[in-house]
Design a protein around this nucleic acid. Structure first.
Length: 586
RNA sequence: GCGCUCGUAGCUCAAUCGGAUAGAGCAACGGCCUUCUAAGCCGUAGGUUGCAGGUUCGAUUCCUGCCGGGCGCACCA
């Protein structure tokens, strides 16, 4: 409908240009919006306001000229000029009914653009370090990223979901050392566990499994392991120096192959757990991309060489620096340390080069808000490598604060007493998690109320929406119990009997779904869809509460049920995109 | 100190690339329950959009300054 109106305006503008009212070079992006107030018609456009200057006349006069030049349309009952120069369009009400049949015909495809009709886009999200289980902070990025990816796909883009596995670097070595020490404990060695090692209980489980599989192959004596190490923090030393020394000791004693086995035991166990966790959360990736593979494939060297050739690198104090200040960064960044080791940032540069080389038209990174400082430097690197930094979109996700009713749930990663995503899902269920996480704008801080998420009342938006869906299913069951039937064809034919304000509102709401979907996708804002679904459910409940479905008037019954089933379809489509189930009964 | 980000009803949040009278839910207040799910339904009230300027036909939205919260300022990942 919006497109139809836009076409009408466009042809009016063309007429005005040819008769000289508007300058020949007039080009307007015609913007049509839904009116907030019904007194303003159904749709409105502000073209006259935006073109007033170019036309050198006041907006209201221009609006009148545009209206006069509008072609006839049986969809538009009348137009009105209002306020400073808005053109309001009153839509032929009988035309809104057609959406119901469209929904029923297209089913789960309703609202979606043709598959893979748009650009190729990659969405990378979560990408948490595989050093422990996902916690509730990752959960929000997971729910948000998954919905964004699904929305983009629904908007016709070809989407690839990717998880970047940070399997290189110091943290992973600390993990390996932690596993090894717990393994030694498992074999009855009495030792003091390092302050800086991973304290979580899951490390013991990994160590135990390692022991089950490899016996005492990695057992060394206490003296071999601990003699001549620097002091740990409690003994007046530095915990970082201590753990690094311990890592070196592990590599020495276990040899490259042995160390690799211990390392992989930790990595694979935790990554497997993350994978399973996300899968249970309804999230599946096409690609799990290993950071180590960037080093092994030589991509890191390639990327640095390109920067070198283009003159963006320099040496200072033994380090190799990337001159990111040339691209707006606050300071230059080290890419290779004096000891020859490349930095995490170097991997990131190579990773983004690799992404663009895979031919994506757009690359979307979903990061925790604490990473916002990296945007500038990564974009700088992309530009320096010769790619367009605008093709990288970074969306930041704020952390969620958990509440149990009024009380804030304390979380601390340090003490290991953080709430995991799995614990959250176990408590409130995946549906509520997925929905709650995306009801708020991603960059907005959010309070996540566990009690509300669990409650089975209309106060809980997930329950409320799912209930609307289940309600339609329930009515159809009751219908059968009453030995009545529902005839869709007749229902469609009799829709015009649903002509009350609530009914028209409800149907109008349905017509908006494809637009909502598109906007939510292109702006990376699933909360728009979440809010829409709540409004649609609310409109449906309001209508339902005032009208009986199971009645003797066959034609009216069919019409009401047909509208109900259409609502159910749209609810199901929307919930599906948010990763929330649409149950047939509650 | 510098940078990014957020600030909207008592609370949690919306507001369609700058649009018309800033909207929902909860809480509050008033009225409803013999009904296909009353753990619900209907209604009322609630605002100087943090503050002060600026840009223009028009600002919650864009710009500047200030106030307040969060985050970031590594040869960590």
């Amino acid at each position: 409908m919006k497109e139809h109106i836009a076409d009408l305006i466009q042809s009016a503008l063309t007429n005005l240009i040819s008769e000289g009212t508007l300058p020949a070079d007039t080009s307007a992006s015609i913007h049509i919006e839904n009116t907030r107030d019904k007194a303003h018609g159904d749709l409105a456009s502000n073209v006259a306001l935006t073109l007033a200057k170019a036309a050198r006349c006041n907006p209201r006069q221009l609006a009148e000229k545009i209206c006069a030049a509008l072609p006839q349309s049986d969809q538009v009952v009348r137009t009105e000029i209002a306020g400073p120069g808005f053109i309001n369009f009153f839509i032929n009400q009988s035309s809104i009914y057609s959406v119901v049949e469209k929904i029923l015909t297209e089913g789960s495809e309703f609202g979606r653009a043709p598959a893979n009709s748009g650009p190729r886009v990659q969405v990378e999200f979560v990408s948490a370090n595989p050093t422990g289980p996902l916690h509730v902070g990752h959960g929000r990025g997971a729910a948000y990223g998954a919905s964004v990816a699904d929305l983009l796909e629904a908007a016709g883009l070809e989407v690839e979901r990717e998880y970047y596995v940070n399997d290189a670097g110091r943290q992973m070595n600390i993990l390996a050392a932690s596993v090894w020490l717990r393994y030694l404990e498992d074999l009855d060695m009495d030792l003091v566990f390092p302050t800086n090692a991973y304290q979580g209980h899951y490390i013991r489980d990994i160590a135990h499994a390692l022991q089950q599989e490899h016996g005492n192959r990695f057992l060394r004596t206490h003296a071999q392991v601990f003699d001549n190490l620097p002091a740990d923090e409690p003994d007046g030393g530095d915990k970082d120096v201590y753990i690094d020394a311990l890592i070196e000791r592990a590599k020495e004693l276990l040899g490259e192959e042995g160390y690799e086995i211990v390392f992989r035991a930790g990595l694979e166990s935790i990554l497997g757990d993350i994978r399973e966790d996300l899968s249970e959360f309804g999230i599946n990736y096409q690609v799990w991309f290993s950071e180590r593979s960037l080093t092994h494939s030589g991509d890191v060297d390639v990327a640095l060489n390109i920067l070198q050739e283009k003159g963006h690198l320099y040496e200072a104090e033994g380090n190799t620096w990337f001159r990111s200040t040339a691209f707006g960064d606050d300071k230059d960044r080290v890419v290779k340390r004096a000891n020859g080791q490349t930095t995490y940032f170097a991997s990131d540069i190579a990773y983004h080069m690799n992404k663009f080389d895979r031919g994506f038209d757009q690359v979307v990174n979903i990061w925790g808000a604490d990473h916002h400082g990296y945007i500038t430097r990564v974009k700088a690197a992309i530009q320096a490598l010769g790619y367009n930094p605008d093709n990288l979109v970074v969306r930041l996700v704020q952390f969620a604060i958990l509440y149990r009713g009024e009380e804030r749930v304390q979380m601390s990663t340090r003490s290991g007493s953080f709430v995991t995503l799995r614990e959250l899902r176990d408590e409130v269920g995946s549906d509520a998690c997925r929905f709650f996480y995306v009801t708020r704008k991603a960059e907005q801080h959010m309070d996540f109320d566990l009690e509300l998420a669990k409650s089975e009342s209309k106060d809980n938006p997930v329950y409320y929406i799912q209930y609307a869906h289940a309600r339609v299913c329930s009515v159809l069951r009751k219908l059968e119990d009453a030995n009545m039937s529902w005839d869709q064809a007749q229902g469609v034919a009799e829709l015009s009997r649903l002509d009350s304000e609530t009914e028209k509102d409800l149907i109008t709401q349905l017509t908006k779904y494809p637009d909502v979907l598109r906007n939510a996708a292109l702006n990376f804002e699933p909360h728009v869809l979440a809010n829409y679904l709540r409004d649609l459910a609310s409109d449906y409940h309001t209508w339902y509460n005032g009208h009986k479905m199971i009645i003797d008037d066959v034609a009216l019954r069919n019409a009401r049920l047909t509208l109900s089933v259409a609502v159910r379809q749209v609810l199901a489509n929307g919930l599906n995109l948010l990763g929330v189930s649409a149950p047939e009964q509650m």
